[in-house]
Design a protein around this nucleic acid. Structure first.
Lengths: 206, 206, 206, 206
DNA sequence: CATGAATGAGGGTTCATTCAT
DNA sequence: TATGAATGAACCCTCATTCAT
């Protein structure tokens, strides 16, 4: 669970994990309020509950914090999806319920998604690749879940694109809230997007 | 065309427009490369072809540059859409061609879209509102174009959401290129998204 | 009248005088409000009624403006004193009336005196010397006026110091207004300072 | 002693006091040479013996430095006066000796007084008020010392004005040195001003 | 003689990072 | 391990001055 991409000068791995969770919680709160660039490392240290010196025992650069936060956000969504998919037999109803639970998670994680979209560019390439790979994995998970309820008549590409659309539309509920929340409730949004998805997959609700 | 939201100490409005276009071009190039926060005002001045002092004759703060760039990007897309829609009789084929031209524009403007997504939060609220309003207007334009080719059986909300999805999916072609360009060509992407759209609108290609 | 200490690139001396009076009026107004350092040359030009380019046809540096203003202030006081003294026969009553008229002038010129005190240091030495010389001249004028009503029993130094005190106390009425205006009216202030002066000079009112 | 009007990000108050004394000493030296506006924060830091970053750990703005310096100067004079007055029984001879010690202090603090006069306007109102209040307090101390050696025949206002004159004349010894030092030695200056004071207070030396 | 656009040195301030304690 | 004082490169922005028109 604890990222080993980021080096720490502390040996005690349990402590590293504990401190990093504090960092993630503190930084996340601040990033939501003011974004990555407007948040200082001093603020992160304070919000995390320790000194600036201690902060730098567990990270090397400010960007490391960004990665830690990204990883945590992505991880959270990933696990949620994984659990939703694994615990259900493949069926259209279950697909619908997976989508529903994913969208509701996105509703809760609106601010996190905004962070995700805003500063990916700030990451160095190798670290960025790790973040993006996780996103790819999630789309593929949704795709797999779809494949299992869909007759073979659809091309692989088609399913992949539907999966991608669903994934993105979930994120957009938060990112474009200034537009969407005027017209839709989360329930209505889920209902309509689900309908469109089923049409695209050419299946029907039972 | 020339933004009067941003004050300048130069009186010659033609010159202001000319210089601002230089600023937009210079800043856009740099923002594409390194993002807003990592670009300095000196770099913007240099890239625009004049001194830092001159830059500040045409803007008041660095954020003004961001707004200028946003406005230019949004304006460009807006005018493109407007032209595409206005010159065509309402028909399904024409709707398809509008979408096609919009997606191809998005293909050309991949980097611009990334900028759009990354720094909106950095804008002050009133200026931000102006930017978002333009986006709303664009979605509504697409919605109108759809309404005209669709029988009355669809709810207003449904059309709005389809319009919103189309708009966002166009932006995502650039923003999620690391994912989408692996599997799709721009042609294929347009073809599939168009198909999904027609299904959602419950119409058929002629 | 027109300062030839400050060079101008304009030949027409009448115009130079006219423009410099505009500059003095504009700059004085601004210096009263915000002091020398916080006033920009652009503001001076604008307040004077012409462009920054034109301003620099009549001065060489911003400091020249300061000198012009100083000179004008000092000149005004000097002429006022000169007139008050020259038109009166030497007598104690007339000395009293000279002091009275000087103090009332200082009452009107409170803001000017503050400027005088605040930025002398900013002047270059030769220009500063000119300003200070004028002040010395004024003290000496007062001293002369005193000498004429005083019997020979007082030392030269004594009279000079009384003259100096009178001169300074006039300036202090404006400079230390935050202290003096609480307790005194200008009339009371003049009355008391005059009494002290007469005691020091060991003369009595008729 | 250490000003708590100015915030610091350093927790160790003893260190704050030490560093602020360094700042005051460094800034004072520079302000004497070139005035507040012509002194840069970098110069202050260097003269104080640390880096610009460190300087800003102990102040928030350049103006804070000005306040620190003012406070230090005023404090020094205040304490000097307080000590001179408190240690002496009320008597004319002692009043004379208080004035003497105050004038000699002013002789030592000539440059400091010039600073005091030149930049008060630059201070923000609340901070300025604190500085002026201290001056009022000092005048009142002198006034009190006078009241004790003077028979009841003098009006309260008269004593206050004499006290004010004495205070100002002390400052002027340094401020108008270009004029006064030509004619007077400090001893002569004190002797004459003291004589005038006694006359104004209508008392005689024993 | 008047204009005002252009210049760029230099100003105040911030903040990621280090390292002695 | 934890601390927090110290550092200085780098940032945004101003403004006195010039000069082509």
């Amino acid at each position: 669970m604890c990222s080993d991409t980021i080096l720490s000068s502390i040996k005690d791995t349990a402590l590293v994990e504990k401190r990093r969770n504090q960092i993630i919680a503190g930084a996340l709160k601040l990033f939501k309020q003011k974004g990555f660039h407007r948040t200082t490392t001093r603020e992160i240290a304070k919000e995390s509950g320790f000194s600036i010196g201690t902060l730098y025992e567990y990270i090397r650069t400010k960007e490391d914090v960004l990665f830690l936060v990204y990883e945590a956000i992505n991880d959270h969504v990933y696990k949620h999806l994984e659990k939703a998919i694994d615990t259900k037999e493949p069926s259209i109803d279950n697909l619908i319920s997976i989508i529903d639970s994913y969208y509701r998670l996105m509703d809760e994680m609106q601010d996190e998604v905004i962070i995700l979209y805003q500063e990916v560019k700030s990451l160095e390439t190798d670290v960025k690749e790790a973040v993006l790979q996780k996103e790819r994995d999630m789309v593929l998970m949704i795709k797999k879940a779809m494949e299992m309820c869909v007759s073979g008549e659809l091309a692989d590409e088609e399913i992949e694109l539907v999966a991608n659309n669903i994934f993105v539309q979930g994120q957009m509920w938060g990112f474009r809230r200034w537009m969407l929340h005027r017209t839709f409730t989360i329930d209505k949004y889920i209902e309509l997007q689900t309908t469109f998805m089923l049409q695209a997959l050419r299946v029907e609700k039972n």
